[in-house]
């Protein structure tokens, strides 16, 4: 069995194989549900219902998708330049930390605090990724290792702060920070509906990133550096500076996930602010084939599975881990599907 490149990619091919991948994922999920002793169709129904079945469910899915849009964009931007940012989790927490610091310590009035917190968070996340990327371009240190390890350093650092200087005196001993003042929270898009402006910011970010990628010189440089750094350097593209700019952009986007979770949803900083949004962002970006607008779709899809599985496990006796397994399966099938859109499997 060998792979032979196809002469031209048709639309049917480009959409057909991912569709097959999704179908196979559903099949695997059904088998798992059967193993757990449940009716697979009913389980799937409960998941879909849990994700989309009511106004509340849809809003919950949109809320869950919001941080994933940001981390997915962060990963998509970085991976385009072949900059393997595995540290969106650390950048998210950097953004969340700075949001809380600015929001609770500076005493700014709300309308001022909301944009200032955002800018400070972006700066913090950008710097968080700048350091490992400086090490990469100056000394050749592998950014996979440094960004990954920074996740743990950041989490322990937050933990230290939450047990010490940032600990909420009114928190009854829980490791959590003071909450942001009411007027420094992101308002809801529509009164009475539990969906905050962070989601809209995510959509805007996706459009901006898409514009950067296809219409600006920076986007062109990022793609060139990702596809062939040697040719990019020969052509006079400043490869190092492009990588540093990519780092600022990617780190800033991931930090907005932390900002939006704190200022839009939770109001304070805790150690369980992110159940791995930074890592899930990698799945989101890969499922979207690194396309910024695709990230929105895939973030909604991933969030829907999580929310749906949560709700399903409350109703049926199937563990919520089925969501994690389904996503991992979807990712694997999708990687193969992407390959199949470009290559033919030839016997012999």
């Amino acid at each position: 069995m060998r792979l032979e490149p196809v002469a031209s990619q048709t639309l049917g091919r480009t959409l057909g194989f991912p569709a097959i991948a999704l179908a196979l994922t559903v099949l695997v999920a059904s088998l798992l549900a059967m193993l757990a002793g449940a009716n697979p169709l009913a389980t799937l129904g409960l998941i879909v219902n849990g994700a989309l079945g009511s106004k509340f469910a849809v809003l919950e899915t949109l809320n869950r998708a919001t941080p994933l849009i940001f981390t997915g964009l962060a990963v998509a931007v970085a991976f385009r330049a072949r900059l393997w940012n595995i540290g969106a989790e650390a950048q998210l927490y950097a953004g969340a930390l700075v949001t809380v610091l600015v929001g609770t310590r500076l005493g700014l009035p709300g309308p001022v605090a909301i944009p200032v917190m955002a800018m400070a968070a972006v700066a913090a996340g950008a710097l968080m990724l700048l350091l490992p990327v400086m090490l990469k371009v100056r000394l050749g240190v592998d950014e996979v290792v440094t960004t990954l390890l920074l996740n743990f350093i950041m989490l322990l650092f937050i933990s230290m702060l939450l047990e010490g200087p940032l600990k909420d005196p009114m928190g009854m001993g829980w490791p959590k920070s003071e909450a942001l003042p009411r007027d420094a929270r992101l308002p809801r898009i529509v009164d009475g509906l539990r969906l905050h402006w962070g989601f809209a910011l995510g959509l805007i970010s996706a459009v901006v990133v898409w514009f950067i990628q296809v219409r600006t010189t920076l986007g062109y440089e990022i793609r060139a550096v990702g596809l062939n750094p040697e040719a990019a350097r020969f052509a006079g593209i400043p490869v190092r500076s492009v990588l540093l700019k990519t780092a600022l952009l990617s780190g800033g986007l991931a930090a907005l996930a932390g900002y939006s979770e704190v200022a839009g949803l939770k109001g304070n900083l805790t150690l369980d602010l992110s159940p791995g949004f930074g890592y899930t962002g990698i799945i989101v970006a890969m499922l979207a084939l690194l396309h910024p607008l695709g990230v929105v779709v895939s973030a909604l899809f991933v969030a829907g599975i999580f929310v749906g599985a949560d709700s399903m496990s409350r109703a049926a006796e199937v563990p919520t881990y089925i969501a994690d397994i389904s996503l991992a399966t979807a990712l694997l099938f999708m990687v193969v599907a992407i390959l199949m859109t470009r290559f033919n499997l030839v016997r012999g």
Partner: peptide, 13 residues
């Protein structure tokens, strides 16, 4: 191939 062009870029790019 290595220096003169980027294989996955279009002719325009």
């Amino acid at each position: 191939h290595k220096q003169g062009s980027i294989a996955d870029f279009s002719l325009t790019e």
